[in-house]
Design a protein around this nucleic acid. Structure first.
Length: 506
RNA sequence: CGGGGUGUAGCUUAGCUUGGUAGAGCGCCUGGUUUGGGACCAGGAGGUCGCAGGUUCGAAUCCUGUCGCCCCGACCA
């Protein structure tokens, strides 16, 4: 099967991207759909990625002055009603608990005790955390409150996709309350920058930062900022958001305090979050037709050593050499943490094992066999290079070289993703070019097309709505970076202050 | 929730029109030969054909209902 099959994953990206995505998840053993509609089982290999993300982000949150706390899963229905825009935004996708007891009736369990007030399973926690903050805040001296919670939330989505949109998902939600508008705005931006740094330095995913248009804003927020990534089908994915909530939620929840001047006023709040969608982003950004590719800085396993033991008489020596190599590599550190090494001693063919770790995206694979033993070498293969490529390195040199190689892989992935995004981003100045850019050549079976279009825009929600209806293209963000370049909106001919980023999105 | 499609072993599926209670490939298990790029040989386990009714001597196959899933639309971290 080796030479006939061109790649480990079928179909390939070019043939059917959504199906390829599913197959990568399956081949890498990351997760599977569960018997509960829209809910996934995250398997150990996938959950370990989430744990790595948690560990890194948690440290970054702590370094920026935040602490963790935990709030209830259930939110009284009435809390959700307090902020008008918020209700409208989330009502349709809420799971509601109306009963609290089961009784056996005719051999079947039926809900018996109806709740006086229904409880909503949190789709996000602004309201219930706001209620707590209202109790905690009395004086300007109680501010700021800088908390984060790691939690699961439920949004009854119509069309679930593993990691990208599931009914239940894991995330972190930061919720802060501040004395002044300026301080809250600064917090919103600070956390956006944390996300940007995390995506770039750990996920090797370059992201655009900017503000959401009104139509894409978080329900109840004054401003929503986002990090947007381009994945390999050239669509955009929102990888994280940071919201400046103004005083909307503090007014709804009654977060009031007496200020330095003695006047009673409402706090200024923010919220910000990233979810297990980051895993989906990671998959679509880096993986190839052979499966998952884990950037080393987010990989839970950096190196896998595969002992090749064809002969019984040399087997013990090979296994021992493999263990010794693993031990020596574990003693080195990669960005301050020990390099994570696995030795796979299962009784399987070397080829089978190699392919398994290619599919699972381990950055470095090493094979060590009797011939290597004689020569004092091991075969080293990098996941960012073609799978046939292997380099025989002296075993004695390997441990010292591993961190540097991991760094090379990390930068190679970031460079590749950045180049991909750049080559699929266009400044467009006419409506015709814009529509052509987002129209596939084959409408029945659309090929991978489009990308990021940077165009002027008159700021009108009607234009955005029209384009969304015509092409399913939306404004992903109004970038900060773009130096204000006055121009003309190609859709209306009206003046525009700057270009915005358009794309099809997940 | 609206439009279309589909349901046979863990996965992919043949059989259905023209009823006679299931066959394959992959995967899995055992033994042997293998192992440096997805091995081979031999043997084996696994399905009451989504579910519930109906027609019939007899239903995977025909009829009715129901549920799940997939695709398109509205929603979305």
């Amino acid at each position: 099967m080796s030479d006939k099959q061109l790649s480990a994953i079928s179909p390939q990206r070019e043939e059917d991207f959504p199906e390829w995505y599913q197959q990568v998840i399956r081949a890498a053993d990351l997760a599977e759909n569960s018997e509960v509609r829209g809910c996934m089982v995250i398997k150990p290999w996938g959950y370990a990625l989430w744990e790595r993300m948690q560990a890194v982000l948690d440290r970054m949150f702590k370094e920026t002055g935040h602490k963790n706390a935990y709030f209830p899963l259930f939110i009284p229905l009435s809390y959700l009603e307090k902020e008008a825009a918020h209700v409208e935004g989330f009502a349709k996708e809420c799971a509601v608990v109306t009963h609290h007891r089961l009784e056996m009736k005719d051999g079947k369990l039926v809900p018996a005790g109806e709740l006086a007030e229904p409880l909503v399973v949190r789709p996000t926690s602004e309201t219930i955390i706001g209620a707590a903050y209202a109790r905690w805040v009395k004086s300007w001296r109680d501010l700021p409150i800088l908390l984060n919670q790691w939690a699961n939330v439920v949004r009854w989505e119509m069309r679930p996709r593993l990691f990208l949109r599931t009914a239940e998902f894991l995330w972190q939600e930061g919720h802060t309350a501040h004395e002044t508008r300026e301080e809250a705005e600064a917090e919103t931006m600070k956390m956006l920058r944390v996300y940007e740094t995390f995506a770039r330095d750990f996920l090797a995913v370059p992201v655009l930062t900017g503000e959401k248009s009104e139509g894409e804003r978080f329900p109840g927020a004054l401003r929503t900022y986002c990090i947007e990534a381009m994945v390999q089908d050239r669509k955009a994915i929102q990888a994280g958001t940071s919201h400046f909530l103004g005083q909307n939620f503090s007014k709804a929840a009654g977060i009031q305090f007496q200020g330095r001047d003695g006047a009673v006023q409402h706090a200024w709040t923010t919220s910000w979050g990233v979810s297990t969608r980051l895993i989906g982003t990671l998959i679509m950004a880096h993986s190839d037709d052979d499966g998952l590719v884990m950037p080393p800085r987010i990989a839970h396993t950096h190196v896998v050593i595969i002992p090749i033991t064809p002969k019984e008489d040399s087997k013990a020596a090979v296994l021992k050499a493999a263990e010794n190599l693993a031990k020596a590599i574990r003693a080195t550190s990669f960005h301050g943490e020990p390099v994570a090494v696995d030795v796979d001693i299962r009784d399987l063919g070397g080829g089978v094992k190699s392919w398994e770790y290619i599919k699972k995206g381990v950055p470095l694979r090493m094979e060590i066999g009797p011939r290597d033993l004689a020569q004092g070498t091991a075969a080293v293969s990098r996941r960012d290079r073609p799978h046939k490529e292997k380099e025989f390195l002296p075993v004695a040199d390997i441990p010292a070289r591993v961190p540097a190689i991991l760094d090379e892989i990390q930068s190679a992935l970031l460079e590749r993703a950045t180049a991909f995004r750049e080559s699929n981003s266009r400044k467009l100045d006419s409506k015709e070019d814009f529509y052509a850019f987002f129209t596939p050549a084959n409408a029945n079976k659309p090929e991978i097309h489009g990308g990021f279009a940077l165009t002027h825009w008159n700021g009108s929600a009607a234009v955005e709505e029209q384009i969304k209806n015509d092409l399913k293209v939306t404004i992903r963000c109004i970038p900060f970076e773009e130096s204000p370049e006055a121009g003309t909106c190609p859709f209306t001919g009206e003046p525009s202050k700057q270009r915005v980023i358009w794309a099809k999105s997940y």
